[in-house]
């Protein structure tokens, strides 16, 4: 993808992502009466789950030339029944490979760098932790700091697992049928 398209896609995704965070955090804070740090924690952990899921789908669907970044991960064992995984299909026409590469860049730019990158945030998390420290609620500050990082890490793993299931149930559609 050319630079201008990337800028457009990431800018649009980032803007919507930030607006989605604003809305979700508002709902969690206003609707469920959660404190601000818990609302941001919820959005961050949700985003961490989604990035695992989306990343796995992109890396299984749009890598027909076999350079998936999942190759060396433990999850790649689960995916071995997928067509052409992980070596790729050498008989595929160059146009199809190019198209898949473009799709991978488009989806990863819009959903991962844009929407999920804009939706999740480290700065608000830091700021709200600082505010907890400033108001003397040290226990909540520690809970927020450690809890967000650990839950986010686990959520990403869960996202990968869900993505694996999804990918296996719906084999690569970019491969032409025999």
């Amino acid at each position: 993808m050319d630079l201008l398209s990337k800028i457009l896609v990431i800018g649009a995704g980032g803007g919507f992502g930030a607006a989605i965070r604003h809305m979700l955090a508002g709902i969690l804070e206003g609707g469920l009466n959660l404190p601000a740090f818990a609302a941001v924690m919820g959005v961050n952990v949700l985003g961490a789950f989604l990035i695992g899921f989306v990343f796995l789908l992109i890396e299984t669907r749009f890598r027909p030339e076999g350079n998936s970044r999942l190759k060396d991960l433990p999850v790649s064992r689960d995916l071995e029944t997928l067509d052409g995984w992980p070596e790729g299909d050498p008989t595929l026409p160059a146009v199809d490979v190019f198209q898949a590469k473009q799709s991978a860049e488009l989806y990863s730019g819009f959903f991962i760098t844009g929407i999920l990158g804009g939706m999740t945030t480290f700065s608000l998390f830091s700021l709200l932790t600082l505010n907890l420290v400033q108001s003397g609620e040290i226990a909540w500050a520690v809970f927020n700091a450690i809890g967000t990082v650990i839950l986010g890490f686990l959520a990403t793993q869960l996202g990968f697992r869900f993505g694996c299931r999804w990918a296996l149930n719906r084999p690569n559609q970019s491969d032409p049928p025999e």
Binding site: A18, A48, L50, F55, I112, G118, L124, F153
Partner: peptide, 15 residues
């Protein structure tokens, strides 16, 4: 600042 920083990529990197 909210969109400049990211938690999802951080979690993916940790993975």
């Amino acid at each position: 600042c909210g969109a400049f920083t990211t938690f999802s990529s951080f979690s993916l990197d940790n993975h």
